[in-house]
């Protein structure tokens, strides 16, 4: 509370307002409205010393109020930023949880199909279906059944491996690379030879351009995983058209290129397919978890290398793997 203003009766004092109380109330009203009608000059010019004290007090009060109000507005801005950042993080989290749920659904789907085949073949082996067929007991048919079982077990093994890799990568753990001497050319040729049956079945021409051996120090099993993934994708999405694979050594790097001429990848999806849970959104109808390329990218990153994709829908895709030498 400002001290009660005193009405001065002294002659010659230049009161600028009506009476001191009114002047103080007017200044207070101005201050209350966020303005200040008092300046340092007003204070200095005030002849009445008590009134000068009051005006000075009001000026300080007004400055404090201004300062507090600025502080409040800054805090409000900061709070708004925090709130929108929090909203963004929540949204990211919601999206991540949704992607993970979708991934679990896709993983469950992918696991159930080979398990169904396993169950049926085993049921049949344990107790052959009612009508005995002469050929169903032949060694040839039995071997076919065992091969079918083996394929399902292989599929489940790959799926389990991918899921394990996902949890290793997303938990920030290492992929546990074990580098050793590898020839990238021999490795690529071996991977491709493993697809011989599939290549014949699809009648695909595979052109290999790998004139020289390309020795380096990498994790052979992990590189095998990368090349297997790229080559099986080329078969899967290559529409039966020729696939070209080239392996080259340059002074400081090794390059492996897998090119198909199949369905290709739209521009907007090219970054996404190298990320996690790629299938979850668009291409869930294709077999697999949609994690192969992401895992490949993580393996290459951990090896000091990288992977690039160049693709046009309808014209095919080219995946280029670069490894340090």
């Amino acid at each position: 509370m400002p001290p009660a203003p005193r009405r001065s009766n002294e002659p010659g004092v230049p009161w600028t307002g009506s009476n001191p109380t009114d002047r103080i109330l007017k200044h207070l009203a101005e201050i209350g409205a966020g303005r200040c009608s008092i300046t340092e000059e007003t204070v200095v010019r005030e002849p009445d010393s008590e009134m000068r004290q009051v005006l000075l007090g009001l000026l300080v009060l007004s400055e404090d109020l201004n300062y507090a109000s600025e502080q409040r507005s800054e805090s409000e801005t900061a709070l708004r930023l925090v709130a929108s950042e929090r909203e963004r993080l929540l949204e990211d989290r919601r999206r991540a949880v949704a992607a993970r749920d979708e991934f679990i659904a896709v993983a469950a789907h992918e696991l159930r199909t080979p398990v169904t085949t396993l169950t049926l073949v085993i049921d049949h082996l344990v107790a052959p279906v009612p009508k005995p067929m002469t050929e169903s007991s032949s060694v040839f048919v039995q071997i076919q059944h065992l091969l079918a079982l083996k394929r399902q077990v292989d599929r489940l093994t790959v799926l389990a491996g991918e899921m394990l890799d996902v949890s290793r990568i997303t938990s920030g753990g290492s992929l546990g690379l074990r580098p050793g001497p590898v020839d990238l050319r021999d490795l690529a040729l071996e991977v491709i030879s493993r697809f011989d049956l599939e290549i014949q079945r699809r009648r695909v021409t595979v052109v290999i351009d790998a004139p020289d051996s390309v020795p380096g120090i990498w994790d052979a099993a992990r590189l095998d995983q990368v090349v297997t993934n790229l080559f099986s994708n080329a078969l899967k999405y290559g529409l039966g058209r020729p696939i070209e694979v080239s392996v080259r050594g340059e002074p400081s790097r090794a390059l492996l290129v897998v090119r198909d001429h199949g369905i290709g990848i739209p521009q907007e999806d090219q970054a996404r397919i190298l990320g996690p849970f790629a299938h979850a959104v668009a291409v869930r109808h294709h077999e697999g978890l949609g994690l192969g390329l992401w895992i490949a990218r993580e393996i290459l990153n951990a090896s000091g290398g990288r992977i690039n994709v160049d693709s046009r829908p309808g014209e095919g895709s080219t995946f280029t793997v670069e490894l340090p030498l």
């Binding site: 199909t113 080979p114 085949t117 049926l120 049949h124 052959p128 279906v129 009612p130 079918a148 394929r151």
Partner: peptide, 29 residues
Amino acid sequence: IASPGLPLMIVDDDNDLRDTLAELMSAVG
């Protein structure tokens, strides 16, 4: 088990499962 004289249609994109179902069902008759 008796065949109705009509086929059983199996529509599945998974080669192994479709082949296995086809084989089992044709073994059934």
